[in-house]
Every structure is written in structure tokens, then in C-alpha cells.
């Protein structure tokens, strides 16, 4: 259960940052929000997947 909670939290924050980024392009001209958001999303889903397989 814990795994899925982590997963859900990160996936949701990933969604948040992903949706919001187009307008804020700062830091070294990399759209960090988008990339990191996507990364978090993938990480979260991976956690969810692992949790499902265990239970």
C-alpha cells in the first residue's frame, strides 16, 4: 500500500509540473519542470507497478 502512495504522490506532482511548464522557462533554458515532472511520473508509475505485483 505504501508503494502505491509514494507512486501516486509523485505521479500527481509530475502531472502538476508537466501541465504548468510551458510558460515558465527559466534556469539555463531547460524546461526543468517538464523533464523532471515526466521523470517523476515514470518513477511513480514504476512504484505503483511494483506495489501491484507484490500484493
Amino acid at each position: 500500500m505504501m508503494f502505491s502512495l509514494i507512486g501516486a504522490l509523485l505521479a500527481v506532482s509530475g502531472f502538476f509540473t508537466r501541465d504548468d511548464t510551458a510558460m515558465y522557462q527559466r534556469s539555463l533554458n531547460i524546461n526543468v519542470n517538464l523533464w523532471w515532472g515526466l521523470f517523476l511520473l515514470v518513477f511513480g508509475l514504476l512504484m505503483l507497478f511494483l506495489a501491484r505485483r507484490k500484493s
Binding site: T17, D20, T21, Y24, R26, L28, N33
Partner: peptide
């Protein structure tokens, strides 16, 4: 210095 809103919150 480096975080735009969003990442800043994180």
C-alpha cells in the same frame, strides 16, 4: 536561483 515555480515547490 535555479528553480522555476513548480520545481521550487518541490
Amino acid at each position: 536561483k535555479y528553480c522555476p515555480p513548480g520545481l521550487l515547490g518541490l
